[in-house]
Amino acid sequence: MQTKPLGKSDLTLSEVGLGCWQLGGDFGPISADTVAEIVDTALAEGITFFDTADVYGGGESERYLGEHLGNRDPKPVIATKYGRGDGSYPDGYSLTHMRDSVKRAQDRLKTDALDLLQLHCVPTEVVRRGEIFDWLRTIQQEGHIRYFGASVETVEEGLICAEHDDLTSLQVIFNIFRQKLLDELLPRAEDKNIGVIVRLPLASGMLSGKFTEKTQFAESDHRNFNRDGDAFNVGETFAGIPFETGVKLVRELEKKVPEGYTMAQMAMRWLLDQPAVTSIIPGASSAQQVRENAAVSGLKPLPDELHEELYDFYQHQVQQHIRGAY
């Protein structure tokens, strides 16, 4: 497993991390034994970066990570988030509310200071006003957090956040289906030495190549209830592409997969080839998925010609289908 420094911080992340949304049960029921197997396998595969949020399973994802990783030595890096919980989104933000939320996260994660606190897709106008960054600095100075970053939904939000010189990281939706970030945001992050954490590297599993038009998801799975953005930003589900359209596009992409790679491995290797990317955080519903994801770190970079083909594919066959804020 290769590692990279996160921006200007002293944190070092495995370039393949583990997205922990599903550990809270938000993708459908998940047993404690399965959760334990997923996390143990991640550690065995050299994954040292875990990304969660206070709202994943109402705090269950954080709580589990705290119980399972809190006493590890060396301790993995755990990033969490603030900004989508009850009482905050969309207009209940305050220093007091943030501090109280962070203290609860500290308790669940069993830590004196959070490694990385990320704003969790707060509204654009809140990011633009900027006072929320002053609150982050205050709780950092108080010792509750070591570093802060922002998880954003759009290029515009990312660029606004990047104006703050002490921003450690940006978490973004970025994959073969959503390449707009290559034009301005990722070069800006590189220029300012801001770490880039990629969520939804497989577009909610679409880029795994395992879905068909008949695939069904659990009632509580966002891939079932948020296909059209009924619950939150549609870009968080299948990268904002209609499900049936995405399945057809993946069939075309499969023709480009190099020998020795799976569809999912090509999609994730494409991300790791981007110089601005620090770590990708695919989720996993089984230990086998964790192993397959982790193996991508050891694969050779994709040929330049394939990168050009995939950008052309995005421009001419994909981008017109993307819906929602981008």
Rank of each mutant, 00 (worst) to 15 (best):
Pro282Glu: 10
Lys248Phe: 05
Ala231Leu: 00
Gln289Phe: 12
Ala264Leu: 06
Ala267Thr: 08
Val277His: 13
Asn233Val: 10
Pro282His: 08
Ala284Pro: 08
Ser279Cys: 15
Pro282Ser: 09
Val247Cys: 12
Thr262Met: 02
Gly260Asp: 02
Ala267Asp: 08
Glu254Tyr: 03
Glu252Cys: 06
Ala284Leu: 09
Val290Ser: 10
Ile281Lys: 05
Asp273Thr: 13
Glu259His: 11
Val247Leu: 08
Ser286Arg: 00
Val277Tyr: 13
Asn233Pro: 09
Val250Pro: 11
Ala239Leu: 05
Phe232Glu: 03
Gly260Val: 00
Val250Trp: 11
Leu272Gln: 06
Ala264Val: 05
Glu252Tyr: 04
Phe225Cys: 00
Arg251Met: 08
Ser279Phe: 07
Ala276Gly: 12
Asp228Ala: 09
Leu253Gly: 07
Ile281Val: 15
Ala267Glu: 05
Trp270Asn: 04
Phe238Asn: 08
Phe232Thr: 11
Lys248Thr: 14
Val290Trp: 06
Leu272Glu: 03
Phe225Ala: 00
Gln288Phe: 05
Asn226Phe: 00
Thr237Arg: 11
Glu236Asn: 15
Asp273Cys: 14
Gln288Thr: 15
Val234Asn: 04
Gln265Trp: 01
Thr245Met: 05
Ser279Glu: 07
Arg251Ser: 15
Leu272His: 04
Arg251Asp: 15
Asn226Trp: 00
Asn224Leu: 00
Asn224Met: 01
Phe238His: 10
Met266Phe: 00
Arg291Cys: 04
Pro275Ser: 13
Gln288Leu: 12
Glu252Thr: 14
Ala276Asn: 12
Asn226Asp: 09
Gly260Arg: 01
Pro258Glu: 03
Glu236Ala: 15
Thr278Asp: 12
Met268Lys: 05
Gln274Lys: 14
Glu259Leu: 06
Phe243Lys: 11
Thr237Pro: 10
Gly235Pro: 07
Ala231His: 03
Asp273Gly: 12
Asp228Ser: 11
Arg223Gln: 07
Thr245Gln: 09
Val234Gln: 04
Gly240Glu: 06
Val277Ser: 14
Thr262Asn: 02
Ala239His: 05
Ala267Ser: 15
Thr245Ser: 06
Pro282Val: 09
Pro275Gln: 14
Gly229Lys: 08
Pro282Phe: 06
Thr245Ala: 07
Thr237Leu: 10
Leu249Asp: 11
Gly229Val: 07
Pro258Arg: 02
Asp230Glu: 15
Met266Gln: 02
Glu252Arg: 15
Gly235Asp: 09
Glu252Met: 13
Pro242Trp: 02
Met263Phe: 05
Tyr261Ile: 00
Asp230Gly: 00
Thr278Pro: 13
Asp230Cys: 00
Gly246Trp: 09
Gly246Ser: 11
Glu244Gly: 02
Pro275Val: 12
Ile280Asn: 10
Leu271Ser: 12
Thr237Glu: 10
Gln289Lys: 14
Pro242Phe: 04
Val290Gln: 07
Pro258Ala: 01
Val277Trp: 12
Thr262Leu: 01
Met266Thr: 01
Arg269Ser: 03
Gln288Pro: 00
Arg251Tyr: 06
Gly246Cys: 10
Val257Leu: 07
Gln274Phe: 08
Asn233Lys: 07
Met263Ala: 10
Phe238Gly: 08
